[in-house]
Design a protein around this nucleic acid. Structure first.
Lengths: 126, 126
DNA sequence: AAGATGTATTGACGTTTGTCAATATAGTGT
DNA sequence: ACACTATATTGACAAACGTCAATACATCTT
């Protein structure tokens, strides 16, 4: 009554050795997957970090000047960040200015923190 | 003396319209890119979330039972999480048990939080 | 109206990624 | 020794991704 031995045989061959879900499956966290994906490229994460360190928005060429990448590539990365809602943009004349969408980054940071706090809550001691 | 007009012409054609780095470029955050990459797949993020909600480690088959994916695919995702040091593993008899490496997840959460706190510090009000 | 400039879009191409089927490895029980 | 089981590894393949060159679009200047 202690060891793991709940294998289930169906019609002679093994269907699966263990029960599916332990506790509960946390929701799929669909948005979080997209956020992590948006930040999983070195260029994009650095753009996010650049914008995070800034009070004023940055125009595309200012951003581009920090990388050895062509302008279309930077534009592409900015589009990914835009679609993930990690940045907002605003057109002023010829220039387009990007800034960090802090509420979105807060959701990402908050999600990871929530995961960390899921199971180190002080449980029953008796 | 106010508008953006610092284009630099070199030998007749434009070299770049803007100065490269504003403030400072935050370090490349190499590990963070790998962490985000490891969590940018729905299956892997859900595995992380599952482990986060658990006090006891989970064996591979328990994890697999929550997905409609083959065993080699789950094994592959676990390998990615292992290499990112987001999980630790331990072999007990036939089974391999995985648990969350909280210190790594803390670094990821901490990094995002640090980005958020970069520029909303109370600055000069005069 | 015409040229120049900042940015976005398109299309192409090589690389990486997620998945599976097949196989290998290691431990268990008979 | 042999069958069985849990997990990892390998190889293949299609889909997604990062990058660039070329082009389009929008705005400014003259």
């Amino acid at each position: 009554m202690s060891e793991k031995q709940n294998r289930i045989k169906v019609e002679g061959y093994v269907q699966g050795c263990c029960d599916p879900a332990p506790g509960r499956i946390p929701e799929a966290a669909d948005e979080q997957v997209r956020l992590m994906g948006a930040m999983s490229d070195p260029t994009r994460l650095q753009i996010v970090a650049m914008l995070a360190g800034q009070d004023e928005p940055l125009c595309v060429c200012e951003i581009q000047a920090n990388f050895q990448l062509g302008q279309p590539t930077i534009s592409h990365h900015l589009k990914v960040l835009r679609e993930a809602r990690l940045v907002t943009w605003e057109k002023r004349g010829l220039w387009v200015y990007y800034s960090l969408d802090r509420t979105t980054l807060e959701r990402a940071a908050g999600y990871l923190s929530k995961l960390l706090s899921l199971s180190n809550s002080p449980v029953a001691i008796g």
